[in-house]
Amino acid sequence: MELLLFNIFNGFIIGIFYALMALGLSMILGLNGIINFSHGGFLALGAYMAYSLAPAIGFWGALIVSPFLAGFVGLIVERVLIRPLYGRDPLFSLLLTFGLAMIMQDLIRTFWGATGLPFEVPNALTHPLSQVYFFITGYRVFLVALALLATASLFALLKFTRVGIRIRAGNADLEMVSALGINIYRLRAVNFSLGIFMAGLAGVLAAGRLGLTPTMGASLIMPSFVAIIVGGVGSLVGSLLGGIIIGVAAGITTTYYPAASDVVIYLIMAVVLIVRPRGLMGQEGLLE
């Protein structure tokens, strides 16, 4: 029983990484119309920058600064590489971000080395909070709380601020938004950068939990795709839900049949696709 709870909780944590990734991917997919294969690269970049910054500005400083830096890099990448892709066949954005992912992984390996690095979290966060449920450490609770806070802020931003409202309007009808005199290029840049910010944040959090390797993003991105498909393209809540569902499902499977823990998320996806082709919360007619 404790083992099951342990695995469910672990799966939940992993699910949060999937969900944060899927959230950013989903935003970029929605307004920019691009599947960002390099999202995992940005996650790793956020993590490694935090690793390098932490000795200078401490864990808390790195936690705040690193996602912003990742978002800034995202802004530049959007301007230089992504912008020429708007309105073109989705094939090209897939290929370009695919190549970008390879370049980023290779550069990270060159700068920081191929071997895994540990990321120190403050001592205050490493103690178990419960004697019985030893796996509930402060860091994991903190991680959940911070992810919740970030997600809530993002939703509030989309719901209440001017730029958020424009982003949502752009998702519904970009042409109309453009016709109303809003600079959609700037809007898309902001949106892309926001998505990358979420990836960077997920990267820092994942670094404290899983450690750093150049391939850390690559291993998280595929389940994030599955999370989007399961949750339904076009729905941010769906992406969150999808991420948590597949994370927990993988955790439960680890308890009973560890060998299938990677495969089970794809089986869930297949079932969802057969029963509800648009995903759990997908909208009709999007991206077809």
Binding site: L29, P90, M222, F225, I229, Y266, M269, L273, P277, L287
Partner: peptide
């Protein structure tokens, strides 16, 4: 059953399985 980007994502995911 799906086209475009969705088709791409599903084919990738099935491949990874």
């Amino acid at each position: 059953r799906r086209r475009g980007i969705y088709f791409a994502m599903i084919t990738i995911a099935i491949g990874q399985m």
